[in-house]
Design a protein around this nucleic acid. Structure first.
Lengths: 373, 373
DNA sequence: TTTGATGATGTTATCGTTCACATTTTCGGC
DNA sequence: GCCGAAAATGTGAACGATAACATCATCAAA
């Protein structure tokens, strides 16, 4: 073997320099250091390139050679070095997810859905920010870029996040989840307006004259879209459009909304922006002697795990976070492969889950129309 | 400049081969490809090594040289290549977190706490497993190792997880969170027994004769430890030790437990394994005409965000997940730096949060002793 | 046989950093 | 103004994989 300019008998490799590393390193085996491709090649009696071919299952490798190599790999407990591989292939199989650091159910489940979808094929690096302002958003994008992620998914339910997104470099594969964004960006979101419409129309179909709404904070896009869907459904049915009662997603705000609504005798149906507020609302109504669903029907949004165990079990709008995650991942993979596009807006349709918290209004013999799902 | 064996005028680099990459690549700038250290060096009129020194703020660099280099970096929007760096330094600044794919509050917050603690200094790759069995656990460890994580934190609240942990290679820096493990492993956990003890002693101090307990599933270590702490506190006070009522963390199981306990007249105090079960329990008690806290006192565990808005606001044991994350990260960093040790078991002490769901038993004029925190 | 195509394998360059060491510059003391 | 130490900078050689190309074997058709 001619000594290449790179390997002049490999002087510093003779156990000294690397033994130090090996001492603290993983899987010492019979060598004093983690095995590399050359070790496998030597043991199998082939060249390192053949090992590489086996590893990337290249077709042109004889079966018995392949097996010799695989044996050597097992024997040495060899594992390819991700950094070396990434250096030459320019692929890291890693994507970053930027989320909001909040104990709310929706955002947490979106992260979960994305992570589950990515499990096979990508590593998911997460960053939860206390606030989705421009500064921390761009800092995080930068951090991720420094780590060579191939793309970024940002869970951006707040209006501030959308604003921040317009400042990221256009050539970065980025998908926004949970909000509809402006043109060049692709977004995936649950169709909140549709879900709110379904809930509202369902209540109307039970015979209620109108439906009141307890909304989430206006800084959240989901909250706004649900208000829009609710209002559109009322309008479409020619029903009276009551004022929105403002909440902040918390059970307390639902409770307070409930105290307010309980005083109004004509309230027979309430659509809540999320399940937690519905919980508080039901509490308040019950305290004021208004039974759910006999006197007042309540529908929530989210379908948290406890919703079925509320008293009464809560009829609510279920969001398919698994599907959301899959769509987001699919869009990101497409974007990585195909390069910048014009940006599409994907929607995941939610479903109404019927339980026991909604019924025809008091005095109504039977529903005016059959329930629509 | 003499043409080194490595850069013989760099033939394949003259715009063709790499221009292709540049077209789809990031930050084209004036070059047709992402800038590398050599580009910065050339623009700044120094060697690549000097650029490297500036980047790693090595002391022996003249101030004006440093500034020239930094200018060039800014001008080219240069960003060091993480893979190349990792290849030579053998450090990825990445750690893996294995968690359980469940909507439960505790595990979710542990992940959150770890991620927050790591934010500065480490990238966090996550994997949520549907079940913490040996197979999927080892697969995930392997996946992470293939990605060259420097260490792994596993959120292991279930007994099955602990069993699986004994099969990971001993030289892998690994910290278990949420469970106490066998000797060679280091673990960090909330002191569940202590928390349960505090809750129980508090109820006893209010004058209750004994305290009943609704426990989580026995497959969860937290559940077992809380049972242990509760029982020890009763024993220490010489109080009667009632049977455990079995639950499964869900509100429904709490509700069912409540129906059972409501029938027993001598029940005046209940310590619940978590807040969600407490919610169901209170519901059931109320339905059976037993007021909380006037007739029955209830204390939960977790301090979920809604706990303060329950009716009545729930007295509960708060776990400091931020501290837990910090401790876990600290332990992991120590372990990475110092190599295998004998394994320590760190405990984070929980705190009793007093609200309104616990009071002296009916008929008692005043507490026997002042409350202990 | 000889030939050409194709399959199987080996050789060398390359990715973009940091490390080890060599070289040049700077500067205080004589 | 010279000298030597220390500071500042430069020069190759790693790191461990894949890519590109070269070479050797094999085999069917001429």
């Amino acid at each position: 073997m001619a000594s290449s300019p790179r390997n002049p008998v490999r002087p510093s490799q003779g156990g000294q320099a690397r033994a130090k590393v090996g001492a603290g390193g993983r899987r010492a085996g019979t060598l004093g250091r983690p095995p590399v491709m050359a070790d496998v090649a030597q043991l199998a009696g082939v060249s390192h390139q053949t090992v590489s071919r086996v590893l990337n299952d290249h077709p042109n490798v004889r079966q018995d050679t392949r097996e010799k190599v695989l044996d050597a790999i097992r024997q040495l407990a060899y594992r390819p070095n991700a950094a070396a591989r990434a250096l030459v292939t320019r692929r890291t199989h890693t994507l970053g997810v930027i989320g909001i650091d909040s104990p709310l159910y929706g955002p947490a489940m979106m992260l979960n859905g994305i992570e589950r979808a990515a499990q096979h094929g990508y590593f998911v690096v997460i960053a939860s920010l206390p606030a989705l302002d421009r500064r921390s958003m761009l800092d995080t994008v930068d951090r991720f870029l420094g780590h060579s992620v191939e793309g970024i998914i940002v869970i951006a339910p707040q209006t501030s996040a959308v604003a921040a997104l317009s400042h990221v470099p256009a050539d970065l594969p980025l998908i926004a989840v949970g909000c509809e964004t402006r043109a060049p960006l692709t977004s995936v979101a649950v169709d909140n307006a549709d879900g709110a419409g379904r809930a509202t129309r369902y209540l109307l179909s039970l015979g209620h004259e109108t439906v009141h709404h307890v909304a989430g904070p206006a800084s959240w896009l989901d909250a706004r879209e649900r208000v829009g869907g609710w209002r559109a459904a009322l309008h479409g049915a020619g029903a009276r459009e009551p004022d929105v009662v403002a909440g902040d997603w918390s059970a307390r705000s639902g409770y307070e909304a409930g105290q307010e609504l309980a005083r109004m005798d004509d309230v027979t149906a309430v659509f809540c922006g999320n399940d937690t507020m519905a919980l508080g609302l039901v509490r308040a109504l019950t305290e004021h002697g208004r039974r759910v669903p006999d006197d007042v029907s309540v529908v929530g949004f989210d379908d948290v795990p406890e919703a079925g165990y509320f008293l009464p079990p809560l009829t609510t709008v279920r969001q398919d976070f698994g599907e959301l995650g899959r769509q987001a991942l699919g869009a990101l993979v497409d974007r990585i492969a195909a390069g910048p596009g014009m940006g599409t807006h994907l929607k995941v349709t939610p479903e109404l889950t019927l339980r026991a918290s909604a019924a025809p209004p008091p005095g109504a013999a039977r529903p005016r129309r059959g329930p629509r799902t």
